[in-house]
């Protein structure tokens, strides 16, 4: 039998843009309960949210961050951030610069983000690798992954050329300070509780 030809990447996906996503929605492509993210030009169906995931997001929003930064920033939960041209994810929690219009006139962009958090139960590799790359590429300076499986918080900082050059893994007993609010000290246990 002859040698197999050198395999090419089997499937090269068509890359969609943020504008395509808007046009798809306008064309009625998504049913009413759609939860999709645009990640590096590909449409990703978002996982169903488990109670553990939802609860940790609520705790971050209402207590951990809500009680500390509400006066100085805006908290945005599972809303989109536009990373043109090919990204529109919906991070679990974003701490945003205050804007008097509450971002009603345009989507959030990377420059508005002071802290971005994803809560990972089944999606750790995806949050770490795929999303880590696009958030770093966009210049998100402070990205935390709340890893529910291993009870850790991964703090990713110093984005350079599409990857985070500073990665810290924090566990129960440690504390974390948001880059944008160095005077705020949060215990890891409070987030993971």
């Amino acid at each position: 039998m002859a040698a197999e030809p050198k395999p090419r990447p089997l499937l090269e996906h068509w890359k969609f843009t943020v504008d395509d996503l808007l046009r798809m929605d306008a064309a009625g492509l998504f049913d009413q309960d759609h939860r999709v993210e645009l990640i590096d030009g590909e449409l990703i169906r978002m996982h169903p949210i488990t109670p553990a995931h939802a609860g940790h997001v609520m705790r971050l929003n209402n207590r951990v961050l809500g009680e500390r930064v509400r006066e100085q920033a805006l908290l945005s939960v599972q809303n989109p951030i536009q990373l043109r041209p090919r990204g529109q994810p919906q991070p679990d929690v974003m701490v945003l610069r205050r804007r008097s219009d509450f971002y009603t006139t345009s989507h959030v962009t990377a420059a508005d983000v002071m802290l971005l958090i994803e809560v990972a139960d089944s999606s750790l590799a995806y949050d770490r690798e795929t999303k880590g790359a696009i958030y770093a590429q966009a210049g998100i300076a402070d990205y935390w992954i709340v890893n529910l499986v291993d009870s850790q918080i991964i703090v990713l900082r110093q984005p350079v050329d599409g990857s985070y050059t500073s990665v810290q893994t924090l566990v129960h007993g440690d504390v974390v300070q948001p880059l944008a609010f160095p005077d705020i000290v949060i215990s890891v246990s409070e987030i993971l509780a």
Partner: peptide, 26 residues
């Protein structure tokens, strides 16, 4: 051989969606 598995599930378009995306220029 299965399609390359993304860690997250890709959105699946229908054939109707596919034609619609052609019609509206996506």
């Amino acid at each position: 051989q299965q399609l390359e598995q993304a860690p997250a599930e890709r959105w699946r378009f229908t054939v109707d969606d596919f034609y619609r995306m052609g019609e509206v220029g996506i």
